[in-house]
Amino acid sequence: MNDKTPFETLISVAELQALLECGTSVLLLDCEFDLASPEKGRTVYAQGHLPGARYAHLDNDLASVPDGSNGRHPLPDRDTFAAWLRSLGLRKGQQVVAYDSNGGAWAARAWWLLRWMGHRAVAVLDGGKPAWVVAGHRLTSEVPGAGVEGDFTPGQPLVGGIVSAQDVLAGIDGGAAQVLDARDPSRFRGNPNPLDPVAGHIPGARNRFFRDNLDGDGRFRSAEELAATFSALLEGKPAVLSCGSGVTACHNALALEIAGLPGARLYPGSWSEWISHPSRPVETGEA
């Protein structure tokens, strides 16, 4: 087991199991989700999840209600999110581990939000639920009871901050930062997709598909490999992270932290907010 605790980026199945076996209190967040079927994740959770895990719904818990101009998954209100975390029993300094079955696509959003709230001890389970099952550990359909309310209070963000559409627009010509788009290459190029009423990407953006952060086993690539890839994309510029709605962009934020390149800023509204205003420029084709 890694002696460096709390875990702040990734935690392996073996490390998580060791924490649980030694009686360490861990808040497990099951972040299963399906954009095409928003309640499917809750169904999958009910069918089988890590023992003691609580469900975190992307739309209801990890985002606020969209208004048509702020993207599909606006950031939650900090006070509301803090109250939800306390309702799950989160205590100050308690280790949180988020996971899903999609390479961390949704779990990374939970990771970023907790860091944004100033909670240092949060990590994504490397390999997610599939890695837990492959290692021979059991799942359960038992849902934990309400328990005792936690004492978590928000602190200063431990992530690089956020930018608005206006910030991104102002930076396009100056090139002071590099926008990295986490969507798959076909959506980035501008191929038709039901998720994107307007196809394309932010002018000047480069494509870093979030799944490219993973190896063939669905685990994150090494810090050295990630650092080399992101450094080549950024060319010394600070990163602004975007995707469809500010969710898988958090996967790139996590990968940058693993790579030792912290400080990336998130554009929460991302493409779904960008295209809500017809005056904002759109680019198609390869970066």
Rank of each mutant, 00 (worst) to 15 (best):
Q166P: 04
D167H: 02
D167K: 00
L169I: 00
L169P: 08
G171M: 05
I172N: 07
G175T: 14
A176G: 10
A176H: 09
A177V: 14
Q178W: 01
Q178G: 10
V179A: 04
V179E: 01
V179S: 02
V179C: 04
L180W: 03
D181M: 00
D181Q: 12
D181N: 11
R183V: 06
D184W: 15
D184H: 14
P185T: 12
F188I: 03
F188V: 09
R189M: 08
N191Q: 11
N191L: 15
P192Y: 00
P192N: 05
N193A: 13
P194K: 13
L195C: 00
D196Q: 11
P197R: 02
A199H: 09
G200W: 09
G200V: 05
I202D: 04
I202T: 03
A205N: 09
R206V: 03
R208N: 02
R208Y: 10
F209W: 15
F209T: 03
D212F: 02
N213H: 11
L214E: 00
L214N: 05
D215N: 15
D215Q: 13
D217M: 14
G218S: 13
R219C: 15
F220P: 05
F220I: 12
F220L: 15
S222D: 07
E224C: 11
E224Q: 12
E225N: 11
E225W: 00
E225A: 07
E225R: 01
L226C: 03
A227C: 12
T229W: 05
F230A: 12
S231L: 00
S231K: 08
S231P: 01
A232Q: 14
L233Q: 12
L234K: 02
E235Q: 15
E235S: 15
G236H: 08
G236D: 02
K237A: 09
K237N: 06
P238V: 11
P238I: 14
A239D: 12
A239W: 06
A239M: 03
L241C: 07
L241N: 08
L241S: 01
S242Q: 10
S242E: 01
C243I: 01
S245P: 09
G246D: 01
G246P: 03
V247N: 14
T248S: 13
C250Y: 02
C250M: 05
H251N: 11
H251A: 13
A253Y: 01
L254D: 05
L254K: 05
A255P: 04
A255Q: 06
L256D: 11
E257D: 15
E257W: 01
A259H: 08
A259S: 10
A259E: 08
G260L: 07
G260K: 00
L261H: 03
P262V: 04
P262Q: 07
G263M: 10
A264I: 09
A264D: 04
A264C: 04
R265M: 15
Y267S: 13
P268G: 08
